[in-house]
């Protein structure tokens, strides 16, 4: 799973397979981070008013 695991080899199979995995995980991670951070800012922005509905 990681390059420091001893079975790891920098061959095409590992690059394609693990590349796909880390790509998917990055999108999921980045998406969730974006949603959470934006929500924190949205909350802060609405603190002065009654919290609003969109």
């Amino acid at each position: 799973m990681f390059p420091f695991c001893f079975e790891w080899a920098w061959d095409i199979s590992h690059i394609v397979f693990m590349g796909g995995l880390w790509y998917a995980l990055s999108i999921i991670g980045a998406g969730m981070t974006f949603a959470i951070v934006k929500s924190v800012f949205d909350c802060a922005g609405h603190d002065d008013q009654d919290h609003g509905h969109h």
């Binding site: 998917a24 999108i27 999921i28 998406g31 974006f34 949603a35 959470i36 934006k38 929500s39 924190v40 949205d42 909350c43 609405h46 919290h51 509905h53 969109h54």
Partner: peptide, 25 residues
């Protein structure tokens, strides 16, 4: 709860990206 309300809204906003990742997986 304001945070959860916003979180739900923001997650809806980018749901297409998650759905596309889901289709790929």
């Amino acid at each position: 709860k304001p945070f959860l309300h916003h979180l739900s809204h923001n997650m809806h906003g980018i749901m297409a990206i998650f759905a596309a990742t889901g289709v790929f997986l």
